[in-house]
Nucleic acid binder design. Structure first.
Lengths: 160, 160
DNA sequence: AAGAAACAGTACTGAATTAGTCTGCTTTTA
DNA sequence: TAAAAGCAGACTAATTCAGTACTGTTTCTT
């Protein structure tokens, strides 16, 4: 399967929790850990990374905590994923670093790897955090032209 | 990054090689291994899996080998990926198997994981093997930075 | 009919990656 | 100034993955 790390999954969960409870002034790592049933050190680490990538704003000190840096409508989930998983690449070859692959000079796939990558990425870039945080309400995404496309009809390929 | 295993990458490479040289009556594992600069046992294993999933047809015996089971225009790369990586799922939660996740009863993300999954999958389902096997003829253009961008969906999100 | 060439399948090993934990430090406010 | 909270990196354990080896089965050729 195409893999998203557990930590990324947790990260998405945390961000959703922040969105869902954003009436609160701020969110401490401890609170979020409890609410999401995740170990506190892990949550702490994730929140720090999300902060470093401009997705959360942090306040230190005894009354500190985290708040969302932007409206959830303005946060594509690709940003969260990139923050936690590093540069977006399906394989080593599709990254921008050269020389990672022995086959590189002879590999005719390299360019197309980039394309696969781009297809996945642009598809995910249309899903916003606000879409994720409202369970059950996401029945459509926007296609390349900005039109809404029902999710259910989007599936091609067979179900396994 | 979203991860595709090396073996899957090799599998895509092999399938492309078969397509590109399909004037040959058949393709032995040995030939393909040499042409793709991959170890022969690995190639053998991959070809067998691809065959089991109905992507290649095999002929045993001294004059045996593999041929493409269908026209490359009819093979979405999701099929190749699913064959080599197992059921399409970005995280454990998004698979159909229940009970894998401790958080399941309280996890409000579960449904949306499915959505993310579906978004990626339906995007990839539109890319056919024939598209991959013809480098440079793909429906993609280069943007200002030299990155390939599919013309079907204007890439949103920022480039990292 | 026998042997060679090629596919089929399984099991094991070593390596790489990842998740998670621990420890200590810095900042801020009551 | 002490406590609460964030900051940072190192370390360990577990899991996953790639690769290899070995054995069996099929079919063609001589």
């Amino acid at each position: 399967m195409i893999r998203l790390g557990k930590l990324t999954d947790y990260g998405l969960l945390l961000m959703c929790q922040v969105v869902r409870t954003r009436s609160r002034k701020n969110h401490t790592a401890r609170e979020l850990a409890k609410e999401c049933h995740l170990p506190m050190p892990t949550v702490s680490k994730l929140l720090r990374i999300l902060h470093q990538n401009g997705l959360l704003a942090s306040q230190r000190g005894i009354k500190g905590g985290y708040v969302l840096a932007r409206d959830p409508e303005l946060i594509p989930i690709t940003e969260i994923i990139s923050a936690l998983e590093g540069p977006f690449a399906l394989t080593e070859c599709s990254s921008d670093v050269a020389g990672l692959c022995d086959l590189e000079p002879s590999c005719p796939l390299k360019e197309n790897q980039r394309v696969i990558n781009q297809v996945v990425r642009s598809a995910l870039a249309r899903v916003m955090l606000s879409d994720l945080a409202r369970p059950m309400q996401l029945t459509a995404i926007r296609d390349g032209k900005g039109n809404l496309v029902p999710i259910t009809g989007a599936a091609i390929g067979r179900t396994q």
